[in-house]
């Protein structure tokens, strides 16, 4: 690695990123690049120490003087608790799989002919019924776990029963 490439690599380094093998080998053989790397590293550590010492002390004093923690906690106690996100997509995918199965599974008669052998010719209807029951149970579970969202959805559209 050449000097210019080594210095460029040093200047491109991300925060908290270690030196690569090629750079380490170069620094081990090149005292001037190694000294430059050490100087910048030391300067940045010193800079962070200086600014943090002054700023954190200042920030903590502001937090204490203004009783920010008390004010924040007083505000959040009056607010409704944060709710887990309503991940409709996670629920819609399995529902779509069940619904589509109800229509398409019986069409694959030849592939699942063994079911006919086991349950007789009426199996297609039975399968639809089973999947229908599954879909209903799934929908009921969805409504039960998202009562607030369902209620707000119905209220927005004026469909909420009185």
């Amino acid at each position: 690695m050449r000097h210019e490439a080594a210095l460029r690599y040093l200047d491109e380094l991300d925060a908290r990123q270690g030196y690569g093998l090629a750079l380490r080998l170069h620094l081990a053989r090149c005292p001037s690049c190694a000294a430059s790397a050490r100087r910048v590293e030391a300067a940045l550590v010193a800079f962070r120490e200086d600014t943090r010492r002054a700023d954190i002390r200042g920030a903590e004093a502001i937090l204490a003087d203004s009783r920010v923690e008390e004010r924040v906690m007083a505000a959040v106690r009056l607010m409704p608790p944060p709710r887990q996100d309503f991940a409709l997509r996670d629920w819609l995918f399995p529902a779509a799989v069940i619904a589509l199965s109800m229509f398409f599974l019986p069409l694959f008669g030849q592939d699942i002919g063994f079911l006919e052998a086991l349950f007789g010719s009426g199996y297609a209807l039975s399968l639809s019924l089973v999947l229908g029951v599954g879909f209903t149970a799934y929908s009921a579970l969805f409504v039960a776990t998202h009562l607030l969202e369902v209620r707000s959805y119905l209220e927005k559209r004026g469909l909420m029963p009185r």
């Binding site: 700023d55 954190i56 200042g58 920030a59 903590e60 502001i62 937090l63 920010v68 923690e69 924040v72 906690m73 959040v76 106690r77 608790p81 944060p82 887990q84």
Partner: peptide, 24 residues
């Protein structure tokens, strides 16, 4: 998220200075 609102003060105490510093 489980309903223990008071636990939020831990986060305020831990990260308050950073936010205030950015505010400054």
């Amino acid at each position: 998220l489980d309903g223990d609102t008071e636990a939020f003060s831990i986060l305020v105490r831990r990260h308050g200075a950073r936010v205030t510093r950015l505010g400054m």
